[in-house]
Design a protein around this nucleic acid. Structure first.
Lengths: 252, 252
DNA sequence: CCAACTTTGTGCAAGCGTTCACAAGCGGTA
DNA sequence: TACCGCTTGTGAACGCTTGCACAAAGTTGG
C-alpha cells in the first residue's frame, strides 16, 4: 500500500530510458480530468475532419464548454505537447489523449439484455467507430438466442462466462431489468470482465478490482426536476419575500 | 449577488411561519448530494414495497453504496427527519425527498429523435412510473409523422415549438444524431423548455437559465478504457520494477 | 538580432465536497 | 426517574478541483 504513491519510489529511481512514463502519469490524473479528456478528444476528432491542424487552448476550451485554464491544466496532466505562442497540434494531441485513455487497444464490449435499450446499444454506431467493437450480445429469452441484432447473434445469458472469456470481452454493458442486474454482473465478473457500464437502476456489488460506471436515466430526470422546482420556488419565493433575483428589492 | 447566501438575510430574519423554508434549503444543496438523494429515493421506494418502516443511516448507506456519514449529511441538507437512537421513518423520508426533488408535480417530457435510442426512451417504463410522463415525440422523418411509438404519435420537428408549449413540456430529451442536436436544442429552448437531457455527443450552447445534463456513452466507455489501461500498465509496470501489487516485492 | 506579441504551463489561493469524530437526543429498562 | 446503549446531526479538518495570474517560451516582423 505505502509503496503505491509518491515520487521517490519505483520508476523515478531508475536512471535509464523514460524518466516518468505513461503509467506513472496516468495514475495521477484526476477522475474529473479523464472525463473531460474524452470530450476534448471528440472535439479534436471533429477538428481533424475539418482540416484544422493547430488549435489554441482558448478555442478548444470554447468548443468543449470549459474554462481555458482548466483545459490547459488537464492537458498538462498528460504532458506538455503545446507550443507557446502557437497552440496545440491537433493530431499530436489526439494521439496522446488516445494513448492515455488506452484507446490504442481495442476493447471488446458485451451487451447483456437485448430489450429496447439493448437493441439501441447493439446498433449504436458510436461504439465500433471509437474502438469499442461489440463482440457479444446476451439475453435470457431463449427465443432470441441465435437471432442476429446489429449483425451479431444473441447468446443465452447462461453462456456469458464462456463466451466472454473466449472473445476477450473487457467491458460489459448491463441493459437488463433491475432484478436481473446483480446476477448478470456476477457472471460478467466471473468471466473476467473488469469494467462494467450499468444502465439498470440498482447499486451493483462488485469486488474492489472491478470498475463500475452507471447511467441512470431516472436519476438524471430527477436532477433536472430538482432544478425545475428550485427555479419555480426561487421565482415565486423571492417575490413573496420582497427580494428579487440577485438580491434586488422589489417594492410592494 | 452578496445578498444571496448567508444565514442573516432574507428569510431567516422574518419571525413568523416557517423559519427556513424549502426554497432557501434547496438552494444550498450541493449538486452531488442531489444526485445521491435520487438514489436514496429509489432504494427507499424498494424498502416501502418490502414493508420496511424504519431504517438506519448505516443500512440505507449500505444499500445505496455510500458512506453513512455522507448519507447523513446529505439528509441533513433537506432537514432533520430522523430519530436518534432509532433511525429514519422510511415513508417520511420518501415524501421529503420527493418534495425536495420537485416530484410532487408531474414533469412532461418530450423526446426528439425517434431512432433506436428514441424508441427505447419512448417505451421506457421508468419514466412515467416515476412522474415523468412522455407527452410528445418528434422526428425529422416525415414517414414517421403520425406513427404511434409507445402509444404516442410522432410529430415533425418543425412543430416542436407549438406542441411543446401546448402540452407544457418541461423537460426535453435529445436523442438525435449530433449534427441535428444544436438546432433541436434551440427549438426546445424557444418553446420554453428549461431543462434538457442530451444524448447526442455534442456540447450544446444554451442560455444561462437552461439546465443541460448530458449522457455520453462514448465518454463513459472511454473512462472505462482508461481504467483498463491504467490497470494493465500498473500490473505490467510494477512487476517490471520488481514490485507487485500492494508493494509486495517480487524476487527476480 | 531584438523587441513586441502570443500562448502555454503552473504555483497559489479559494471554494467545494468528503470524512472524521463526537456531542446531543431518544427509546428501552430497571 | 435515572441510567444505558444506540443513532442522528454537525462542527471541523482534510483533500480534491477550480480559477487566477504570471513567468517562461515560442513566433513574427522589422
Amino acid at each position: 500500500m505505502a509503496a503505491q504513491r509518491g515520487e521517490g519510489d519505483g520508476v523515478v529511481t531508475r536512471p535509464g530510458e523514460a524518466p516518468v512514463d505513461v503509467r506513472e502519469r496516468a495514475r495521477a490524473i484526476p477522475e474529473a480530468a479523464v472525463a473531460r479528456l474524452a470530450v476534448y478528444l471528440r472535439v479534436l476528432s471533429g477538428m481533424v475532419e475539418q482540416g484544422v491542424t493547430t488549435i489554441s487552448s482558448e478555442e478548444l476550451a470554447g468548443a468543449a464548454g470549459v474554462n481555458s485554464a482548466k483545459l490547459r491544466k488537464d492537458l498538462s496532466y498528460i504532458g506538455s505537447y503545446g507550443t507557446r505562442g502557437v497552440g496545440y497540434d491537433v493530431e499530436v494531441l489526439v494521439s496522446h489523449i488516445e494513448r492515455i485513455l488506452g484507446l490504442t487497444r481495442k476493447h471488446s464490449v458485451a451487451v447483456v439484455g437485448i430489450g429496447n435499450l439493448g437493441h439501441a446499444l447493439a446498433n449504436y454506431g458510436g461504439f465500433p467507430s471509437r474502438g469499442f467493437p461489440v463482440a457479444a450480445l446476451f439475453d435470457i429469452d431463449p427465443d432470441l438466442t441465435g437471432v442476429p441484432v446489429g449483425g451479431i447473434p444473441v447468446n443465452h445469458i447462461d453462456d456469458i462466462t464462456t463466451v466472454c472469456a473466449e472473445r476477450e470481452v473487457s467491458i460489459g454493458v448491463i441493459a437488463t431489468p433491475p432484478q436481473a442486474a446483480q446476477a448478470v454482473c456476477d457472471r460478467l465478473v466471473s468471466a473476467g470482465v473488469q469494467c462494467i457500464l450499468n444502465f439498470a437502476p440498482v447499486v451493483l456489488q462488485v469486488p474492489d478490482y472491478v470498475e463500475v460506471r452507471k447511467v441512470d436515466l431516472a436519476v438524471e430526470m430527477q436532477i433536472l426536476s430538482f432544478h425545475v422546482a428550485r427555479r419555480a420556488d426561487e421565482a415565486a419565493g423571492d417575490v413573496v419575500n420582497g427580494i428579487g433575483v440577485d438580491g434586488v428589492v422589489i417594492r410592494p
